[in-house]
């Protein structure tokens, strides 16, 4: 069994998700990592340090700079012949490319894998995580996206050989602009602690309380869809069925009702703290610690106490 893992990276750095995908992929066979992009030698060096990686393949090309799915699939198609499994994180790049590649290979992909039971047997959540489906595939090749949060990261300390590829790919997609959320907060998808706020904060200014508490804890910030829709938080903070999936050791939900689409994103949290004025809110029902009260009083008190 040979596995090709598509590395996730951004701004010249490997995403912390990749070490988790490699650890998952090791259950399937020998792991090669593909780093595709433009000016990605630093990313390739980071990938070669991940334990369990046999080789790092680097495809450096202008056409791959924005990881346009048509270019990426053009790269993956010929490479795929050599592998029994092609795997990516269930994140923006993999979600975009893996199904497209699957269709071109006339294969059914399995997306959002949360458990691997064998080379062709996987668990995946359906209905916003309210059910888990166990599927098996007898197809000659498996194309997967894997939820990084469901697997522990592989160790580092490796020095896998780095092999350049000479990609001849093109894209009709033109990259125009990106809009990033500034800040040095930890990566939401792999953070150990996540503090999430809901729409009840009432304004972007007041939502800053969430970030203040997160800073005091060294945590990542999350938000509900309602808070994002209201413009209090950027879209990349959204946690849930249509946002990011988190699996921190500690999740703190403040003024978050716990709609099933939000809960879909936090099922992997080890401990949950909920603060809400409504004791009947669904998140309060599943929290390990639930405090009934007004967030505008409680959150500043928490921040104060943590500073002491």
């Amino acid at each position: 069994m040979t596995v090709l893992v598509l590395a996730e990276h951004d701004l010249g750095h490997l995403s912390p998700a990749t070490a988790r995908i490699v650890a998952a992929a090791e259950q399937l066979g020998t792991v090669d990592v593909l780093v595709a992009g433009h000016d990605v030698s630093g990313v390739a060096a980071e990938a070669s340090e991940i334990a369990g990686v046999a080789r790092v393949l680097v495809a450096d090309s202008d056409a791959l700079a924005a990881l346009a799915p048509d270019a990426l699939v053009g790269l993956l198609l010929p490479l795929s012949e050599r592998y029994t499994h092609i795997v990516a994180a269930a994140a923006a790049t993999g979600r975009d490319a893996i199904p497209r590649l699957a269709a071109k290979l006339d294969l059914m992909p399995v997306t959002d894998v949360i458990a691997i039971h064998g080379p062709g047997r996987f668990d995946r959540p359906i209905y916003a995580g309210n059910a888990i489906e166990t599927v098996s595939s007898g197809q000659p090749k498996q194309l997967l996206t894997i939820r990084a949060s469901a697997f522990r990261p592989a160790a580092t300390g490796n020095a896998a050989p780095i092999e350049p590829l000479l990609p001849t790919v093109g894209t009709v997609t033109k990259f125009l602009a990106d809009y990033r959320t500034e800040g040095d907060l930890p990566d939401l998808g792999t953070a150990q602690i996540v503090v999430a706020g809901g729409v009840s904060f009432g304004s972007a200014e007041k939502f800053a309380l969430v970030a203040d508490l997160a800073k005091a804890l060294g945590a990542a910030v999350g938000a509900t869809r309602a808070a994002v829709d209201a413009g209090y938080a950027p879209n990349d903070w959204q946690v849930g069925q249509t946002g990011k999936i988190v699996a921190p050791d500690l999740y703190i939900g403040i003024g978050v009702s716990g709609a099933l689409q939000h809960l879909a994103g936090i099922q992997g949290a080890k401990k949950i703290i909920a603060i809400n004025k409504d004791p009947e809110a669904p998140l309060m029902k599943i929290a390990d610690y639930a405090l009934v009260g007004d967030l505008f009083e409680i959150v500043p008190a928490l921040i104060e106490a943590l500073k002491r």
Partner: peptide, 15 residues
């Protein structure tokens, strides 16, 4: 011109 929601925020592409 399409603005897409991606992991780091948003990106605008033309197709």
């Amino acid at each position: 011109e399409v603005t897409r929601e991606v992991d780091y925020g948003r990106a605008t592409v033309s197709v």
